[in-house]
């Protein structure tokens, strides 16, 4: 399963619910305002890093850059471009968008 989260973790609970319910080995792709959670010093950083032990965490590069966050990505988070986004969707048999 590929989980896609697009809401800021400091505004909505979608990332928290996603991390709670994603099964071991699943992929989580952070896009739009969700990318802030994957940056150093963010209040959600510890949760992301703990989750990275059992999940593959990705963040969309163009969304990081558009938010001035390209240089602040947490270790263990894989940055992908739009092509990588498409690959992730193609690689997984199913996909859930946490709106």
């Amino acid at each position: 399963m590929l989980h896609i989260v697009n809401k800021s973790a400091s505004e909505r609970s979608s990332l928290e619910s996603c991390l709670r319910l994603a099964t071991q080995g699943s992929a989580v792709l952070l896009i739009e305002d969700a990318v802030y959670a994957a940056t150093t010093g963010n209040a959600a950083a510890a949760k992301i890093q703990a989750a990275a032990a059992g999940l593959k965490i990705y963040a969309l590069g163009p969304d990081l850059a558009a938010r001035g966050m390209a240089g602040r990505v947490l270790d263990g988070v894989n940055v992908v471009d739009y092509g990588g986004f498409v690959d992730l969707v193609a690689e997984h048999s199913n996909c859930q968008s946490w709106l």
């Binding site: 969304d63 850059a65 001035g68």
Partner: peptide
């Protein structure tokens, strides 16, 4: 305040998402 502080980030580059950089 809250996520609003992100509006003022230095180093914003919006070319990749094709929107105006109003920062």
């Amino acid at each position: 305040t809250d996520d609003g502080v992100y509006q003022l980030m230095k180093g914003i580059d919006t070319k990749g998402i094709e929107v105006k950089d109003f920062s």
